[in-house]
Design a protein around this nucleic acid. Structure first.
Lengths: 191, 191
DNA sequence: TTTACTTCTTGATATAGGTCAAGCTATTTT
DNA sequence: AAAATAGCTTGACCTATATCAAGAAGTAAA
């Protein structure tokens, strides 16, 4: 059904699955609806799922000892999110995943993904190739974080992801870029 | 031979390869010796290889328009490095990879890795699992970059990787952590 | 349509940490 | 072992950006 179209297209960009493989894959997907402000992952609980967003927006953030939030991931349609460390190592999550809007997500359990990846070579390839691309992107974010000014980081993000920047609250963007909300406000007013 | 022991052990931590698969894998490895300060990857050229360090130390860094260096990866024995974006997308590298010591590295070409991963399910699994772990680590570095003070980042690194911190020049560590060398010097003298 | 949250803006102030400069100390190289 | 190069330290200064505070503007709820 149309609810799986997005994720199947996503897979299709990397590998080809047979019809029966697609069926097997779909069988491990659980569709979940979450309301705005609802938590999908919480510190203390293992992040059981890899989550794919069919519709809506989610952020993953870390709450430090001073009560400050630091956003690691901002995800909209066609993005994946999870507390990756918790998901892989089966340890309690350190991050929150919070719906920024009412959302529909597809959830796949760690064991199910691993089982399927062991059985279906193409699926393993898919996650490998996709994760390698995420990794390359992650290096770029790191470079940006350590080498650019707040203003440069802000405009870089806004130019690269205008739809996301317009869609999420500014304080979320601020905590993603490691900038104070006030500074973002000033950067915007300056232009 | 012993030169392959490290990488085979590395693989062994994730998956089991048959003897013939091991042989196939070894056949795509090229052993290269590089001298201190030699470049293994340079902007403008495609980063052809995934590189594994048998012995020595290497850093990957970005040179910005103001001539400042920003280190993305510091790698010693049993680590991989490459300009990942260039390697995956076959586009000219943006980073330098520079030997910090005389080093012995194992190089595997993109096409060879892809061909083998298509043929050998376990190898695909290996790279998938390993990259997923790298990814989880990468999020931690991001959090650290956007949420911690320079001093916290410095001590965090030194405690986590004391051997590396003692082995590489301080300006390299500084450019990895996004701190000025002077500040690192002051942080150290303060303790 | 008033009340109450939530988010954003603006101003005043403080400070972490960068930059510049100069000298010092190692470590290579000749 | 002298010369040269590379790396580290220290001091003085400066600026980008955080923090604090208070109000304005949106948005949702009652």
């Amino acid at each position: 059904m149309s609810e799986y179209k997005g994720i199947l297209d996503h897979i299709d960009r990397y590998v080809e699955l047979s019809d029966s493989e697609i069926e097997e894959f779909i069988s491990i997907l659980k569709t979940t609806r979450v309301k705005k402000r609802q938590f999908i992952v919480q510190p203390g609980f293992v992040s059981e799922y890899r989550n794919y967003i069919v519709e809506g927006a989610v952020r993953v953030f870390y709450l430090d000892d001073q009560g400050k939030e630091h956003t690691v991931i901002i995800a909209i349609e066609d993005y994946f999110f999870t507390d990756f460390y918790s998901y892989i190592h089966r340890t309690p999550a350190e991050y929150y995943a919070e719906a920024l809007e009412d959302s529909i997500i597809l959830q796949m359990k760690y064991e199910d993904v691993e089982k399927l990846c062991s059985r279906i070579h193409a699926l393993s390839q898919y996650f490998r190739l996709f994760t390698e691309r995420s990794m390359a992107y992650s290096y770029k974010r790191t470079i940006s974080n350590i080498s650019k000014t707040t203003e440069e980081r802000y405009w870089e993000y806004v130019n690269k992801y205008p739809e996301i920047a317009n869609r999420v609250p500014q304080y979320v963007l601020a905590s993603y870029l490691g900038i104070s909300p006030e500074s973002i406000s000033r950067i915007r007013s300056r232009s």
